[in-house]
Amino acid sequence: MTDTPQSPFDPNPPRRNFYGRRHGKTLRQSQKGYLSEDLGELRPRGITVQDNPDRQRIDPTATFFGDERPLWLEIGFGGGEHMVHMAATYPQVGVIGCEPFINGVAMLLGKIRAAGVENVSVHPGDARDLMDVLPDASIERAFLMYPDPWPKARHHRRRFVTPEHLLPLARVMRPGGIFRVATDIPDYVRQTLEEVPLAGFDLLSSVAEPWEDWISTRYEQKALREGRVPHYVTFKRQG
């Protein structure tokens, strides 16, 4: 019996607190068109696990047109500049992006059309739900670019760089896989340097100069205009 590609996401997922916006200002008509016409074909696809018919997982081969290719993950792609740039720069990989803010999803879909990239997949939701259904050790590179800083101390537990997010990320990343973090918030750098190694990652670099294949995003440009210094941190998955 052949597994059939389908949606890997649980229709009744575990209840989780979600912090942040899902909708912003009214979408333009063209953006509504991107969502209705393009998003369905770009969602990650899954297969039923043969020895457990109640469990599904993302199938990278089904997601990327039957190709087996390295899989990269962008966590919270914002407006999509970085994700589309990486997909265009590295056409031999498959890039999955997750973003719960629907206006950002619509912006990304417009950029995908304009760039003509085909090696992308889009999950319009929480990264935790995506990591629930990714296979173990399936991600070769992950990106966390200018995440929500949650600046108040009582909100620091909402940041991505906490065990609730980092331990599932460590599970889905391959040994030796690269995890990049970019932020302009010094306290976010502090927490990143403290928490990420505890989840099974080795620090490779923590510098003020971007990576060679970096593209400046609107969030970085805003930070520079407001006098904040961006920071770029690179980790390697242990193992």
Rank of each mutant, 00 (worst) to 15 (best):
P230G: 03
K152G: 09
P151Y: 06
L130G: 09
H155K: 14
G24L: 04
G97H: 00
P163Q: 10
L198T: 13
V229M: 10
A142Q: 09
A208P: 00
P70E: 05
A142N: 09
L108V: 04
Y219F: 15
P11I: 15
S138Q: 10
I102W: 02
A114C: 01
F64Y: 12
A208D: 11
E209W: 11
L27K: 04
A170P: 11
V233G: 01
R159Y: 04
P53D: 02
E212I: 03
D3W: 09
F235C: 05
D202I: 06
P210M: 08
L73N: 07
V122K: 02
S138C: 14
E37N: 08
P135S: 06
D3V: 15
F201E: 08
G78M: 06
V95I: 15
M83F: 02
T2N: 14
V161A: 15
A182K: 11
L166G: 13
E118K: 14
R157S: 12
I75A: 02
D187A: 13
F235S: 01
R218T: 09
G46W: 02
L35H: 07
R16K: 15
F201I: 12
A115R: 10
Q238I: 07
L198E: 14
F77A: 06
A153D: 10
W72I: 01
G20N: 12
T89D: 01
D132E: 13
P230C: 03
P175Q: 04
H82P: 01
R55M: 09
D129N: 11
T4S: 14
P8N: 13
R128V: 12
A62P: 09
L130N: 07
V117R: 01
D129H: 13
P13G: 11
D132W: 07
H82S: 11
Y19P: 03
Q92R: 10
Q29I: 14
T183L: 05
P151A: 08
N17A: 13
Q92E: 11
M173D: 05
R154G: 05
E81M: 05
T217P: 09
Y232V: 03
D187F: 13
N12I: 15
L109E: 00
G66K: 10
L39Y: 00
S7D: 15
V133T: 06
G33E: 03
E81N: 02
R154W: 08
T162C: 10
F101H: 04
S216A: 14
L144H: 03
L108N: 02
R15T: 13
P163G: 10
M107T: 10
P60N: 05
P149V: 07
Q221Y: 01
A88Y: 02
V172N: 02
E226K: 12
L42T: 04
A170W: 02
I112H: 06
G76D: 06
E194L: 11
D129K: 04
L134E: 01
E226R: 12
D54L: 14
Q29N: 14
I102E: 08
V122M: 01
G20Q: 09
G94D: 07
A223L: 00
E99V: 10
F18G: 04
P91E: 03
M173C: 12
G78H: 11
P163L: 11
R69D: 00
K222C: 00
R190V: 14
V120G: 09
Y146R: 09
F77S: 08
D51Y: 08
L193M: 12
L109D: 02
L109G: 04
M145Q: 10
N52P: 07
G46Q: 04
N52D: 15
Q92C: 00
S121D: 04
I102L: 10
P149Y: 05
F179Q: 09
